[in-house]
Design a protein around this nucleic acid. Structure first.
Lengths: 145, 145
DNA sequence: CAAATATAGTTAGTAAAACAACTATATTTA
DNA sequence: TAAATATAGTTGTTTTACTAACTATATTTG
């Protein structure tokens, strides 16, 4: 089965490219003197877009698991970019809110993040984007539980 | 600039899908009772295909950095799947070789790994694969240093 | 209502990624 | 040849991923 060998390569390409994208963003973040990581950015960006959320909601939106989210939240709290507020009706839960400092940071960084993201997409078209999304979603769904 | 917002999504999709692919393979490895990780597999598969290599060559082939390779090699050595042999002409370097046990493991696992890899590709075509590869390579190159 | 179950979040362990700083050895060049 | 530079690999630190096991609180059900 020659096909198997060939399609086995997609996972390598996928992993390699995903790591490069993250590495590139991480490096630019560093160069710009930002003290947050790319994954931390994803969280505060969600809070900026959607407003206050609990940890479960943040985990679902960013496709991270709960322990990972706990730790990212811990780090963002230490940096005083977000705040854990007790949930008024559910004592198991926290409401996560951006601080003023966190909101300022998102506003300041947003244009630069967009240009970092655009960089990867140079020389690619609108229809490439659609194809790419379709194929990624298909892979994702094929492996869903 | 509406485009920036939209293309910012590709990195999320990419990261999410790459993680799912790795997670799926990891879970299948577990279910099959295999004691190696997906990244460890990538290393012993290279050795199986290409024969003895040094750590630098393995790092380049798998697109991992040297510290990461050192640690994967350490783990595979502990499991006695590979062997670090001194390089006859360069005392800084090691030659990494599969043990018999390592070679047996690759032979035993290969068909199942291929079927794990094929699973992701269900409902996708030959030309999808070409498009996918082209776009991933383009992103990778756009972000190269 | 009490017991069983589900949910929100945390902690612990292992693996991996990225970076910096390091040791040891080779190679280049002044 | 001695000094400078390059290369192979290691170690330490931080962050993230995933799993399992855990605490505390809510909800369901018998």
């Amino acid at each position: 089965m020659q096909e198997a060998l060939k399609y086995s390569r997609y996972s390598f390409l996928l992993d390699r490219t995903a790591r490069r994208v993250k590495q590139y963003a991480k490096q630019r973040f560093r160069e710009l003197g930002w003290t947050i990581t790319v994954d931390q950015w994803a969280v505060i960006k969600q809070l900026y877009d959607k407003g206050e959320l609990n940890q479960r909601e943040l985990a679902e939106l960013t496709f991270k698991d709960h322990p990972t989210m706990t730790r990212i939240i811990d780090l963002l709290s230490t940096k005083e970019l977000i705040l854990r507020k007790p949930h008024p009706e559910d004592r198991r839960s926290f409401i996560i809110a951006l601080t003023n400092k966190g909101e300022e940071l998102v506003k300041d960084c947003l244009p630069e993040v967009q240009s970092i993201r655009m960089k990867a997409w140079e020389n690619l078209s609108e229809s490439d984007f659609k194809e790419f999304k379709r194929i990624l979603d298909s892979i994702y769904d094929n492996l869903s539980l």
